[in-house]
Each structure stands twice: as C-alpha cells, then as structure tokens.
Nucleic acid binder design. Structure first.
Length: 261
DNA sequence: ATAATATGGTGAT
DNA sequence: TCACCCTATTATC
C-alpha cells in the first residue's frame, strides 16, 4: 500500500475534503494528544505530498506523517462513525473525517520541518517540480544496482518495492545492472514508465501495472511465473529487499568490458 | 471464517 | 541487526 502514489492519493483527497476548513483535531489513541490539542480548531492551509511523506500545514505548524509499512489513512464522508480506539490522529470537518492508524511517523513541528525533510529527498516523479536532469545525473554517477538506486529516497522519492519491480520489468531491465550503465534513451524511458505507473496508481489509490486481480494485477511482483511469457520468476535480493525478475523479459546485463574479445 | 504477509523507515541495541 | 507499528490485503481452509 504505502508507496508514493498512495501518499499523493491521500493528499488529493484531503486537499479536496479538508483543506480550507477549520479542523477538529484529536487523538483517540492519545499518543498524539498533546500535539492534537495544540492545533485543534485551526485552519488547514494546505496538504502536501513529497515522496512517501505527507504534510498538513496549520498556520505556522506542520503535521508530518510517514505511513511506514502498515500505516493507513481512512476516509469517512459525513457523518463519520466514532473513531476506533487505535486511531492516532483524526482530522474532522463538516465534510468528513480522516483517521490515521499505525503510522511510523506522526509529529508536529514548525513549518521548517517540512523543508528539512524535503531537502533530504530526491525529486518525486509525481510532482510538477521534479528535476529529471538531477536524477539522470545521480544515476550516471551511481554504480550500485539500478534496483537498489530506485529505492534510495535521496536519489528519487516515492518509489517502493512494487513500483521498482514492475517498472524494471516493463522496461526489460535487469535489476542488478549498475545505474550508471543506463544510457540516456533508456533512462528517459524508465522515467516515463515510473511516472506513468505512479500517476495512474495515484488516481486509482492502488498500484496498477497489469489488468487483473490479486497477483494477476502485476507482471512479476510476488508471482511464480511471468504474466507475459510464463517463464519461472527469479527472486533476488536487491538493495536489501526481495524483488522479482523474469529472466526472459529482463535478460541479464553483461558488462561491456566482457563483450569484446 | 482464519491466518500469513509486507507496497518502510526509524531508533534501540 | 532487530523490534516496532497493529493495518488492509491476499491466500487458504
């Protein structure tokens, strides 16, 4: 669930349903109670997504949320039911209520907190202000496997395990290929693929690569056989996380130095 | 119905 | 290196 597409999906929902209103802020679970009291009743100025980070700005304050692996934001149009006891943060207006559950980060800070977080992140393909040239330059000087670089949030913000896996499949790239070995046309195509997957997934609220349900909604992620050609899918660990590769659709990268002789 | 799993990143050890 | 967060989704019975 929580890759960058979902954060943008949530931001769009909250922008439409909560921004511009005075918000009743509470913490049924109590772990955010003091902070909630500080901003309770204040005007929500804007909601912003950057990579996997979410920011709600209330005047000089900003609420910073990272969903981690299990975190989720539920949305209830009015009349919203009573929040379950596990709800860390509820943001409620006359239009509806958003309940935050099981985040890895939920904290209140000054506005500059957002700037500090953003400064640690690479460009986000889902943002208009994304600097593609900067990402291309970072790739060109990075000899780590491309599968690992795609997960590095300081290079590129918002891509997670499913999106990196499916994007590399769609572009026929071996995850273990060094990022620096990617030529310009293939980099540009990969950027376009990432942007397309993420934008469509941000609209739908779930990752969409292939048409289908469950595992059949993906080409290789969590599959035993390739959805396109039926070949047996490999499961290498790249960048510390398990990923999936079709050996036929994603032929092994061979170092140019070994080709000549 | 019930159970296994992880589409992260942090902070403790 | 590991525990944590305690969810929705998916698979299985």
């Amino acid at each position: 669930m929580p890759e960058g597409h979902l954060i943008h999906h949530i931001a769009r929902r909250h922008r439409a349903g909560l921004a511009g209103h005075e918000i009743a802020v509470s913490s049924p679970q109590r772990r955010f109670a003091a902070e909630a009291a500080t901003i309770d009743g204040q005007h929500l100025d804007e909601v912003d997504a950057y990579g996997k980070h979410l920011f709600h700005r209330f005047g000089r304050w900003v609420v910073h949320v990272h969903l981690g692996q299990q975190g989720t934001f539920l949305w209830f149009p009015s009349p919203a039911p009573d929040p379950r006891p596990q709800v860390r943060l509820r943001l409620a207006a006359e239009t509806g209520a958003a309940d935050l559950i099981a985040p890895s980060i939920c904290r209140l800070g000054p506005r500059r907190l957002r700037d500090a977080i953003v400064a640690s992140l690479g460009p986000d393909p889902l943002r208009e202000d994304a600097d593609v040239e900067l990402v291309r330059a970072r790739f060109a000087s990075d000899r780590r496997p491309i599968g690992a670089v795609l997960l590095d949030q300081s290079v590129l913000a918002g891509v997670g395990n499913v999106i990196r896996t499916e994007a590399l499949f769609l572009d026929g790239l071996d995850p273990s290929m060094p990022a620096a070995a990617l030529d310009r046309p293939r980099f540009d195509r990969l950027w376009a693929t990432l942007t397309r997957i993420m934008e469509r997934s941000a609209v739908d609220g779930r990752i969409v690569t292939a048409d289908g349900v469950g595992r059949d909604a993906r080409f290789v992620y969590k599959r035993e056989t390739c959805r396109r050609c039926g070949a047996s899918v490999e499961c290498p660990i790249v960048g510390g996380r398990r990923m999936y590769r079709c050996p036929k659709e994603q032929p092994a990268w061979v170092s140019p130095s070994h080709e000549t002789c």
